[in-house]
Amino acid sequence: MASLKELSALPEVLAPGHRLCAGCGAPIVVRMITRAAKGPLVVANATGCLEVSTTIYPYTSWNTPWIHTAFENAAATASGVEAAYHALKRRGKVDKDINIVVFGGDGGTYDIGFQSLSGAMERNHKLVYVCYDNGAYMNTGIQRSSATPKGANTTTSPVGKVSYGKRENRKDLTEIMAAHNIPYAAQVSPSHWNDLYQKAEKAFAANGAAFINAFAPCPRGWRHDTKDTIEICRLAVDTCFWPLYEVVDGKYRVTYKPREKKPVTEFLKAQGRFSHLFQPGNEEVLEAIQKEVDRKWEELLKLEELSNS
């Protein structure tokens, strides 16, 4: 287990001066994950808030080689980088061992980039794909994605006279990635920095493709105070809305089990995007959300039990 003192001595991959909003969760994820690479690191980035805000020409916030090509193809782009690495190493043009990490938002990962991600995972390229999941297309102005939680108010699932926000439950991408039988898949939250860092270390050390789904609050889109970013992460974990777990070679391990599982309303009420759910008439929606969180959590515990027995 690393201490923050040790981690602070490792190189900082992200330089300040980027233009992500104050309190944005994405760079917190980036800073911690990239530390675990230990050694040369190439970053590939999908179009989205992180990409645009860190590379406004002629400025870059990246202290390491970085590439963005488009929105839906960060995993494919990184596949090419990885292939180039093998080829150039074989031909004696690169001598170092390198790491490759990909950052994509939930839109670039769950939705439009789903196919290229699936392809890259199936081909088992040695790279770490990190989704920073802020539960909507934030860069284009808070449109719903398949990662948006049920009940959230977004600009394409707006609350209206006959609408309580997004009707559908989230796509469980971490499960889908685990089903690719990749060596490593995990879910992390920046509030639990040590858990996150250790998982990132395992991901970089994995013998092939690794996937990390990172919870990444967006104060602008979630409508919470900028100072509460980490607290909201904690609530997501303690309500089991965002369980922390990993799947290593098919074996599940829940890395954090809250002593007392908090009601999901504590997570929801901290954010403006869910405030309408607390108006009279939406009790059933709240109930349905709680039920789904419970069902998924129980399922996860069972998977842990089954895969280890």
């Binding site: 190439v42 590939a44 590439i67 090509t69 488009a70 193809n73 494919a76 782009t77 990184a78 596949s79 090419g80 980088v81 292939a83 180039a84 690495y85 080829a87 150039l88 043009k93 290229s116």
Partner: peptide, 10 residues
Amino acid sequence: SATIGASAAG
């Protein structure tokens, strides 16, 4: 996309 990634990698 992969061809671009590889080419950018040299």
